[in-house]
Design a protein around this nucleic acid. Structure first.
Lengths: 336, 336
DNA sequence: TTAATTTACTAAAACGTTTTCGTCAATACG
DNA sequence: CGTATTGACGAAAACGTTTTAGTAAATTAA
């Protein structure tokens, strides 16, 4: 392993000078800087991250806390898109990412402990139970944190505009003449509450009364649970003419139920999804859905995190807007 | 930050003793070990990974090289499953994982350099272009490597039994009476070659001649390219009665083409996928496909990697077997 | 000319561990 | 009883950086 000392010998200067030259200190003469940099790359020098960290307490590493009760965190396309974007933005900023878990090795260790152990400079948190004591411990600690789709008072957060998304989809269905609109929503998280609010606003604006049976809870990303919810809706005396699904993926569960009853989309029933993932574009019928800008969400969270790691930045709630994606899963409904 | 010194003061022993007590050296008396461990947890001590690494040259960190030309590495369900499994197995072994890339910060850095910089103890490589000079540099270096679905002479590798998978699917189609069987395969990687071999073997055993037009190349995980390939097949004078698709996801592209021509699966045409991901189970019709044990593949690669990091292990090619998943996308074909 | 300032560099300590040699009792052996 | 051996611990160096405080020479100011 070639170290700073090797360079210093080769150049006939002290290690201190090499370090400064490499790190762009102004007090080193241009010629020396040149010389040092040249020999550094000649010797194929790589700084030792551990040694640097030990001195500076900066790991250039950001933690990613992306867990899920169902452990589908990584296979959930929406979250993998965020993860991917976080990773790339982190990398262009010179950071690597580390997954934060709480059972490293055989022994139990809290999220915060894991962060400390790996000296993460900051953490991006998404898709977790934000009431979890360990999450709270981390959030309240001194490590910089940015949360996704959940806001704490004194912290920066990046949120997708869930209220708007649900509002727009519901409004669209209403505009198309639907009056019996059901909403299969996910577990009652903050995200879900926002969407329900958006849905309700659209209904109100269109003078539509939504019976309680039209609001049914299922689990995000769980095709089976959504299929059951769909079945319940179709079994009603007055089944809906349109259904909003919790997300694009789990919609497929609903689709199965609909098909198996010999119904067709959108002729007999109109549907829309949520997320706007790749899958929704290739499905047939193509899904009318709401695109969440996962890429932007990831990018912004890293940007904000880096800001609060490197400088002093004020806590800020950033809203990332989505986009209505039309497909052919909704048909105009002519009330009889 | 509480260090070993704090513990040593509290206990009235030297730092050396604390270190040894914590690391289970035999030369420390049981009582001292007890005392040290108790005060360590009382003070909420966390070892400093950087300091330890600096001394021991062991980071407890394994690199993951999972890139894709199409950058869909993380959103590809099959690979996210592997990634997830790698992550979990690594964690239970006390390792964290780091994504290896070649453009950390603003400056270009080779995969190997990145590994060195982060002191990865070993690397798992999958889903990359194994001819890439940078990959080769890493593979030939002194850092322990395990490859997935590709084998180098002197290295351990974990491979899914691609030949068997394609063989079984093709045989099944033949058993069901199909004689005009097409195979839309992926780009000509090693994996693809194996599958083609399996396919061909099945055809041969069943005395089926496969015209060249029935073997068409598309891109993995690319619904659009697969749709086009499907169209080409359906345009033939003698279109196939059964099609094997490159993977479950991209099959949806083919499905779209089939549906839009007013054909039905499996009545008019039989299909099967590959991978056996979640999606294939909830699709309608449910897909007949080959399940690749992503979980096992991830686990085994970490196991093997840790083995070669911690002890001396011989290079070994490990084959992970899959499983035939029947669905209802294949129908018995009565030759006229 | 002398004093003050600037420039370009260096010595050395420090970061928190691990690990190699010691050391010094206590015990075992001949 | 004297000598090995063992058991339990400590001193100190080392890992590769960064950074503070300094120094000597060169330049500028008075």
């Amino acid at each position: 392993m070639v170290t700073i000392k090797d360079i210093s010998k080769e150049c006939g200067v002290s290690p201190a000078t090499v370090s400064k030259a490499l790190n762009g200190y102004a007090e080193i003469s241009p010629e020396t800087v040149e010389l040092v940099k040249r020999t550094a790359s000649k010797l194929n020098y790589m700084p030792n991250a551990a040694a640097r960290l030990l001195k500076t307490n900066r790991s250039n590493n950001i933690g990613v806390l992306f867990v899920d009760d169902t452990m589908s965190g990584l296979t959930h396309e929406f979250f993998s898109l965020i993860l991917n974007s976080v990773k790339e933005e982190a990398e262009t900023n010179g950071y690597d990412i580390t997954f934060i878990s709480n059972n490293i090795g055989r022994q139990k260790m809290s999220f915060l402990q894991h962060c400390k152990y790996r000296n993460c400079d900051g953490v991006v948190i998404a898709s977790v139970d934000f009431q979890n004591p360990e999450v709270l411990e981390l959030v309240r600690s001194d490590v910089p944190v940015v949360t996704i789709d959940y806001s704490f008072d004194n912290l920066s957060s990046i949120v997708s505009d869930n209220q708007e998304g649900a509002y727009r989809l519901a409004s669209y269905l209403a505009e198309q003449g639907h009056r019996k609109i059901a909403f299969i929503h996910g577990e009652r998280t903050l995200v879900t509450q926002k969407r329900i609010r958006g849905f309700n606003r659209a209904m109100k604006e269109n003078g539509i009364e939504t019976p309680d049976e039209y609001m049914v809870e299922a689990r995000y990303h769980d095709a089976d649970s959504v299929r059951k919810a769909t079945a319940a809706l179709l079994d009603l005396d007055e089944p809906p003419t349109a259904i909003m699904f919790p997300d694009d993926f789990s919609f497929i569960g609903g689709q199965t139920e609909i098909f198996e009853r010999g119904l067709s989309i959108p002729d007999d029933i109109s549907v829309c999804g949520y997320d706007g993932i790749n899958l929704s574009r290739i499905l047939n019928p193509q899904l009318t859905t709401w695109y969440q800008n996962a890429d932007m969400i990831g990018k912004e969270s890293v940007r904000k995190l880096v800001e609060s790691i490197e400088g002093t930045s004020v806590a800020e709630q950033i809203m990332v807007s989505g986009e209505f994606l039309s497909g052919n899963s909704v048909k105009r409904w002519n009330s009889k």
